[in-house]
Write a protein that binds this DNA or RNA. Structure first.
Lengths: 109, 109
DNA sequence: ATTATCTATCGTAATTTTGCGATATAATAG
DNA sequence: CTATTATATCGCAAAATTACGATAGATAAT
């Protein structure tokens, strides 16, 4: 099929999957790391830093923006991207809880 | 294209992306939550719990196993799956550092 | 106004993902 | 040995993802 059966899962499971999918690509991980490293936001610099075409970078940025992980403000001709701090912290917490919910090895395996 | 350009990214970025992709699906999130909840490992119970076909569940389990997030041991006719505690903690830490590397909002945006 | 620069979008092609029926494999039961 | 049960694999179809050239839109510079 190629279509995920979202109806049978909880809202929380679906939302977490969407956010994780947004990060689950080396280019988008690299973009996020660059944005974090530059602290002040960068923009088309990403095209120079990473070895991807401008259209590709723009598309990845759009996906990260759609997921709410980054936000962009127009700065003259260029666009300044930075982390959406609130959503970033929310995901950080949600993932923290998800991983911490596992409490050590069990009897079998 | 449809092919990710892994050559231009670091080993760390690629590996993290692979692990995140493994979790970035509601069915696999649900499977992991079930395994964690059952503490002692379950197996084909997942087919009953989630509303997916046996072949589909088996495929998701395979992906989680390939990513090293779970492990399965044969228990008679059935297979017992559980969290791979070491790899689980490794990913937990890696993600923790990734999210914590962001240190609050910047000047622009 | 014209030009240059930066970013977004469109269209397309290759590839991957998702889901499942059908079937194969493996282990236990009778 | 045969039947039963549990899981894995195969093959397929639909859909989503990835990447990029071409192009459009918007802003600044001359």
């Amino acid at each position: 099929m190629g279509i995920t059966k979202t109806e049978i899962f909880s809202e929380e499971q679906n939302k977490l999957a969407v956010l994780l999918k947004a990060i689950a690509h080396p280019a988008r991980i690299a973009i996020l790391q660059e944005i974090i490293k530059a602290n002040a936001c960068i923009c088309g610099d990403l095209v120079n830093e990473l070895g991807l075409a401008q259209a590709t970078i723009s598309q990845h940025l759009k996906e990260l923006k759609n997921a709410g992980l980054i936000q962009g403000t127009i700065e003259g001709v260029s666009v300044c991207y930075c982390i959406h701090s609130e959503n970033w912290r929310l995901l950080e917490n949600q993932l923290g809880h998800f991983f911490a919910s596992y409490r050590g090895p069990s009897s079998c395996c």
